[in-house]
Design a binder for these strands. Structure first.
Length: 210
DNA sequence: CACCAGGTTGACC
DNA sequence: GGTCAACATGGT
């Protein structure tokens, strides 16, 4: 890609794993729903909830906004935090029903980010996932895997610091942002335990000439 | 049986 | 402006 450390890591991850083509979803709205559901739970649980929502015709703005809260709780229970997630999904849908998803997603990146952050249940990571993967705008998503991997190659910082670093050191490209985040997650899940985190990435960089 | 998962929130320094 | 328990289920 280029010469910086972050670019070399990207090249290594892409070579080892190949493109991931995130986010797995049929529609932009499904990305938003998945982004809330996947918080602190495994994706397999989210898939179950999503298929249940689809079976009940709730994977669309208006129907989800008007859904019965007890039915929602039942459908998303497999994702944990079901009381919070059910009401937050409904609140999110109500917001998009009011303002229109097209209208909202056409806002400039930073304004869209702030708007998403104003929703209950949407913090930094979820907001950025929505901006990048649902609205298709350039925002780099930081998560626990990213923080851990950066720490292991000698880079520490809070969410906004790490995000700023990524956004200034790699090309500002939506597809690269999408792939990079996905690659970090998949690499971490595949090769790195909770403790010995990403020690291996340093070895890989050296041994493979990145 | 203990621990973790593609976090966020509100309370409290 | 940081830290921390609470939120909850399902898999290993």
């Amino acid at each position: 890609m280029k010469a910086g450390k972050l670019c070399r890591v990207y090249d290594l991850l892409l070579d080892e794993l190949g493109p991931q083509y995130w986010w797995p979803a049929e529609t932009a709205f499904e990305v938003v729903v998945g982004a809330i559901l996947t918080q602190q739970t495994k994706w397999t649980n989210v898939e179950k909830a999503i298929s249940g929502l689809k079976e009940h015709g709730l994977m669309e703005v208006d129907s989800l906004a008007g859904a019965d809260i007890e039915l929602l709780e039942e459908l998303v229970r497999c994702c944990g935090f079901y009381r919070q997630k059910s009401s937050r999904l409904k609140g999110m849908a109500a917001f998009f029903a009011d303002y229109g998803m097209e209208e909202v997603f056409s806002m400039p990146v930073e304004k869209l980010r702030r708007t998403m952050l104003s929703l209950k249940g949407v913090g930094n990571e979820t907001a950025d996932s929505i901006v990048l993967y649902a609205a298709g705008k350039p925002k780099f998503v930081i998560d626990v895997y990213t923080t851990r991997m950066m720490k292991c190659i000698g880079i520490e910082g809070n969410y906004m610091q790490l995000q700023h670093m990524f956004e200034t050191e790699i090309p500002q490209d939506v597809d690269i942002y999408k792939e990079y985040h996905a690659l970090i997650v998949e690499y971490s899940k595949a090769y790195c335990g909770k403790k010995r985190c990403n020690e291996c990435i340093l070895k890989d960089l050296d041994e493979n000439g990145y």
